[in-house]
Every structure is written in structure tokens, then in C-alpha cells.
């Protein structure tokens, strides 16, 4: 099988994640930040879809909502309730920011499931900026609201006194790891799922090359379908996880201390 596969099978699991200019298809250089790329295109499609759902879909302001307005209200209610439940009523001031991130991630994840599409959230640059934004914003907020009392977050007053310095070190480390795990979780999930589908997809045309394909091709197709279903779940769950973690961090900033 190995020699047969070697003749025709080509693996490019990282191909869908490549970024290139929309004009010439060439990779962009570091100073060309204003050049629209495929990443730009799919972010723009996401913005347009969000506008269609949240703005155009609610144009009629129907008392009894239609299908699209129902979805818009559902999304609003979902995130609004999450912020209120996790961060508390005073967290609702920051609801627009959290809702913005939720919708961006959700639409990016789902649009990325369209074949040949690009997934902005599979890139650590994108998730990293958002996670850092949350981290810096929440930390600044904590100090602005509580001053030095915000440091109580690291001082576990419920623990026995001798343990507290050790716990404080652990708490500080875990606090600074937050943006890392926050961003890599999302980008990693999106990348891994797409890459695995890509690998299975590479196995799918084996039937054109070899007799072994009679077994391999149906299995590969089945695996793609299964992975795709899983990815649909992951697309939502990761948007949800990113959002709820943001709410948790916000809660820590608004109500520090254990």
C-alpha cells in the first residue's frame, strides 16, 4: 500500500490555513498589513453575515418574531444571560464587547466549515489578539475598580496561612497562563479538526489509484462525514467556551477574592 500510495497521495493538511493576498495570490510580507487577504475576505463575509442576522434580520421589530429575528434574539438572549449569570448584573456593561467576540468567533467557526473556506479563528494571531485583549482589559478593569485590593484575587484567604504564599505563586502563574490557554484552545481546536478532515480527504481518492481504495475510500468518506459532524459541534462549543471564560475572567475582575 505504501508504494501505491506514494505514487498519488499528496498531503497538504496545512494548505487551508495559508494566507495569501487577494490580488496576486502571493504570500504577503510583514509590512503589507493593509493588503486584503483570504483571511480578510472571510472576516468580511463574517461581518456581513452578522449584519444580516443582527441588523437586517431585526428590521421589522416584529412582536412575534420571524425565523431570522428569532435567531438574532436567541443569540442575544444566550450571551446576555451568560454574562448576567456568570459575571453578575454589573458585568452587563461589557455585554456588547463579549457579544461582539462571541458572534465573530461563532461565524468564523461556522463559515470555516464551508468547503474551500478560510477560518480566521484557526490562527493564533487572531485568537491571541482577542485573548490578550480580554486579559489586558480585565486586568486593567480589576485595578481600576478595586485598586490594590484586586491582588486579593491571588491571596487565597480561605487557605491556611503558611500555604498562602505558595498558592499565591500558583495563582499568579495560572493568571498569566490564562490568555495563552484561552487563545490556543480555540485556534488549536479549529486547526486540528480541519487538518484531520484534510487528511481523510487526501485518502478519499485512493480508489482512483489502487484497488485498495475499494475499502479505503468509503472509510475515508465516512470519516470525513463523522469529523464534519463533530466539527459542527466544536464550532459552537469553542465559541461558547471562549465567551464563558471571558465572562469568568470578567467576574474575577469585578468581584475579586474567593
Amino acid at each position: 500500500m505504501a508504494e501505491e500510495a506514494g505514487t498519488g497521495l499528496v498531503f497538504h493538511p496545512m494548505e487551508p490555513f495559508k494566507i495569501h493576498s487577494m490580488f496576486d495570490g502571493e504570500p504577503i510580507r510583514w509590512f503589507e498589513f493593509f493588503v486584503p487577504t483570504n483571511a480578510t475576505l472571510w472576516m468580511a463575509i463574517g461581518v456581513v453575515m452578522i449584519a444580516l442576522l443582527m441588523v437586517v434580520g431585526t428590521l421589522r421589530r416584529a412582536l412575534v418574531p420571524g425565523r431570522i429575528q428569532s435567531l438574532a434574539e436567541l443569540a442575544y438572549g444566550f450571551v446576555h444571560k451568560m454574562v448576567e449569570d456568570v459575571a453578575g448584573k454589573d458585568g452587563l456593561v461589557y455585554f456588547p464587547y463579549i457579544f461582539t467576540m462571541f458572534l465573530f468567533i461563532l461565524f468564523s467557526n461556522f463559515l470555516g466549515l464551508i468547503p474551500m473556506a478560510f477560518t480566521p479563528t484557526s490562527h493564533i494571531a487572531v485568537t491571541g489578539v482577542m485573548a490578550l485583549g480580554v486579559f489586558i482589559g480585565v486586568t486593567a478593569l480589576g485595578f481600576m475598580k478595586h485598586g490594590s485590593h484586586f491582588l486579593n484575587l491571588f491571596w487565597v484567604s480561605a487557605a491556611p496561612l503558611p500555604l498562602r504564599p505558595i498558592l499565591a505563586v500558583i495563582e499568579v502563574i495560572s493568571y498569566f497562563v490564562r490568555p495563552v490557554s484561552h487563545s490556543i484552545r480555540l485556534a488549536g481546536n479549529m486547526m486540528a479538526g480541519h487538518a484531520v478532515i484534510e487528511v481523510f480527504a487526501a485518502f478519499a481518492p485512493v480508489i482512483l489509484i489502487s484497488f485498495v481504495g475499494v475499502v479505503v475510500t468509503p472509510l475515508a468518506l465516512l470519516a470525513i462525514v463523522g469529523m464534519y459532524a463533530l466539527e459542527i459541534l466544536v464550532a459552537f462549543v469553542q465559541a461558547y467556551v471562549f465567551t464563558i471564560l471571558t465572562c469568568v475572567y470578567l467576574k474575577d475582575a469585578l468581584h475579586p477574592g474567593h
Binding site: 486584503p36 483571511a39 480566521p120
Partner: peptide
């Protein structure tokens, strides 16, 4: 090299 571009558009 793609980071400035992505961050700008993001």
C-alpha cells in the same frame, strides 16, 4: 509575517 495583516483586519 502574516500577523500584522491579520491583526489589522481582525
Amino acid at each position: 509575517s502574516t500577523f500584522p495583516n491579520q491583526i489589522f483586519w481582525l
